[in-house]
Amino acid sequence: MNEKLPRYMNYGETMKYLNIGSYNTLYKFIKSGLKVTIIAGTKRIDQQEADKFMAEKAI
């Protein structure tokens, strides 16, 4: 990926990072255990947590 994304990504950036095309899929990932950090109503997903989530779900 050529674009450098911040470590703490918003939902749109997270979708790019994980190469998913819909918010519904992202919400399914969150329900399946992808951790979201919420500070003063702002939601962010840590790149390291996203990597860890994907590694845990590998079969």
Rank of each mutant, 00 (worst) to 15 (best):
G41V: 07
M9N: 15
Y23M: 11
I20V: 07
D46Q: 07
G12S: 12
A50D: 02
T14K: 01
K43N: 01
I38N: 14
T37H: 09
I39C: 04
A50H: 06
Q47M: 08
M15I: 07
Y23W: 13
N24A: 10
K35R: 12
M54A: 08
K43L: 02
L5T: 09
T42W: 06
D46G: 08
T14G: 06
K28P: 07
K4L: 13
R7L: 13
G21W: 13
K16R: 13
T14H: 07
T14C: 03
D46W: 04
Y11N: 01
Q48S: 11
R44G: 05
K16Y: 11
G21P: 01
R44T: 06
A50T: 07
N19E: 13
E3H: 08
I45C: 00
K16T: 15
I38M: 09
I45G: 00
N10G: 00
A55S: 06
F29R: 01
A55P: 00
L26D: 02
T14R: 07
E13C: 07
Y11S: 00
N10D: 02
N24M: 04
G12F: 14
S32Y: 11
F53A: 10
N24Q: 10
L18F: 10
Q48C: 03
M54Q: 15
A58Q: 11
G41N: 02
I59Y: 01
Y17G: 01
Y17H: 02
S32L: 14
K43E: 09
T25Q: 09
A55I: 02
I20D: 03
A50R: 05
Q47N: 05
K28M: 13
M1F: 12
Y23G: 11
F29W: 12
F29A: 01
D51K: 12
S32N: 15
M9I: 13
E56L: 03
